[in-house]
Design a protein around this nucleic acid. Sequence first.
DNA 1: GGCCCTCTTTAGGGCCTT
Length: 315
Amino acid sequence: MSLSSICCGNFHLLRNSIGDTCSIRWLKYHSRLIYETFLSSRRHQSRPLSTTVLARSTRKGSKQSFSNSRHLHGKSVESSIEVFKQSELEQLKSLHCYNVEEEFSGVKTEWPATILVFDIETTGFSRREDRIIEFAVRDLMGGKNSTFQTLINPEKEVRNAYVHGISNSMLCRPDVPRFGELVPILLQYVWSRQMDGKPVLWVAHNGRSFDVPFLIFEFRRCKLEMPGDWLFVDTLPIARQLVDSDGSKLSSVSLKNLRERYNIPLTGSAHRAMQDVTTLCYVLQKLTFELKLTVPQLLEKSFQASDLPATRAEK
DNA sequence: GGCCCTCTTTAGGGCCTT
């Protein structure tokens, strides 16, 4: 299975899903029972959800005890949040690619994992001192409700609004959830996208050093562990494999530079989570195509939360 | 903080994330 064909398929679908975002109110309304099921399954299990043993069994395709709970509310969620302007949509449409193999064969691609590209905005760089204030994710499978985003009340002052434009007044509102309140909603979203017996592959730029540790610490503050079938891929070390036409390595592999390298238009404010997610989706497509990376190879590069030093001991 | 590179490895600077 070539990643290029899958990515082309992804972005064919992505074209149709931009602006099609889950309503957090809907998810909030339906997440309570799901969350209770999650907690219940944890109680019935004699080990945490994110143990290595459990994850290994998941990689082989076995089901986890909670994997079917998403079917309790398996109906589609409504869309209510407009993310992009029409002019911006037109720009992105110009980048769309077709899954040629799928178009000709008529056979649906067998996905080895649910691939979720995500990004966070935070109050700073310290995973211990700072908090997540925005979370956005896009399922590369595309389709209805393939994206999800929300602001998060960090319960502390935001002093870096000059970076992302997210101010205290935007976060200190009754309709903005704290991270602990978001967890059941996020789990509901992920389960609604996850395929039976297959892992979830989260993709982020510099995720290994930044996004994933932040998530781990937020889960830890809620006294929860991430599901064991959540795998992560960092696009930063992958991008470092790129070379220029003269064979030299790139001087910068920041998301901004990669976007400019691939002529990807900026469709909103940089340093807002969903904007960066959209950029990374296109960068991932171009990156894997250029490096001829397959999905299995991408999975081989994945890591688990428990693999990170930050999860093994407090520093 | 983790990773990479080099004027390196008994180290230090820069990148990348907000």
